[in-house]
Write a protein that binds this DNA or RNA. Structure first.
Lengths: 159, 159
DNA sequence: ATCGATGCAAAGCGTTTGCAGGGGT
DNA sequence: ACCCCTGCAAACGCTTTGCATCGAT
């Protein structure tokens, strides 16, 4: 949660993990990319590219928005970061690399992680035949995406 | 299905349903909107605004892309059509008004409807406490979104 | 020394908007 | 008659690209 004004830095372990993943994806580990990654894992929201840009400028003042976009793209290719699918507004980025579900507020557009374990067997539970039926059609399921949708209760109105 | 070259038209029942839903949303039922809706429910894919535009021009040749966007927006507000959330490329529109799940192919980006009933109790099944816990935090769940992700099997390679 | 990454500006793409005229109720 | 909708073009916001230079390996 880190609400201090201290710009986030990577521990040695995390820096190594970052470097490894980037190099495996054929990309280099730069100051800009480390700062973008550090910021993304320091917050529990899912910021837009512009929010990342504004935050990371405190660590790397001369960084450009284009570089943030390229850094995010590299991190996504390295599977350290994911794009959160959305119908409204700019793409949001998720620095939580483990599979998990989301909670979305319809009022604010905010997206949070759900404290519920990812259940790889969920498709089978939905319909035990479905997975087999799809496979017979040549479709192999590799994962799923689940999002609970709702909103914070409206202020109660006076009768 | 409908693979004939005949531009889709609405049955009287459907036209009435369309008119009702639009009027309830404070919008008018026009030739352009009827054509957009008719096209969307005639296909089992989830076309982009531009694909709708190109298709509907066969019925309403002078329609503009802006009008297609406005028609789609009106249909979404009337809850007859839904946007399909996606991280890549333009928004896709879904003319299947009943709640349902999606299957997404990672190779082609194609999205199809899943032949599995929508289970309103799925959040409770995930974790019986979760819904109650979120409610105590002031968050009311109104629905959920589920997508199975995968791809058609790769062509087998010759050894 | 090499070759990818950076920062800037400009272009790109999907989408929305302003407005005069047309059409639905 | 009213007011919303249409079609056109121009603007918009987010994202990508071209290019000269910089910096990581």
């Amino acid at each position: 949660m880190r609400k201090t004004g201290i710009p986030p830095t990577l521990s040695d372990t995390r820096e190594e993990r970052l470097r490894d993943a980037l190099e495996r994806a054929g990309a280099r580990c730069t100051r800009q990319r480390a700062a973008v990654f550090a910021y993304l894992i320091s917050v529990d929201t899912h910021p837009t590219a512009d929010q990342v840009y504004k935050a990371v400028r405190r660590t790397v003042p001369r960084i450009s928005l284009a570089t943030v976009y390229k850094a995010l793209e590299a991190l996504v290719r390295a599977r350290l970061v994911f794009k959160v699918p959305d119908t409204e507004g700019p793409t949001r980025y998720d620095g939580n690399g483990t599979e998990h579900y989301h909670l979305r507020c319809l009022q604010t557009g905010e997206v949070r992680d759900l404290p519920v374990p990812y259940d790889a067997a969920l498709p089978e539970k939905l319909d035990p035949d479905l997975v087999e039926r799809l496979r017979r059609q040549g479709f192999r399921i590799t994962g799923h995406r689940l999002e609970l949708i709702g909103s914070f209760e409206d202020e109660p109105t006076h009768p």
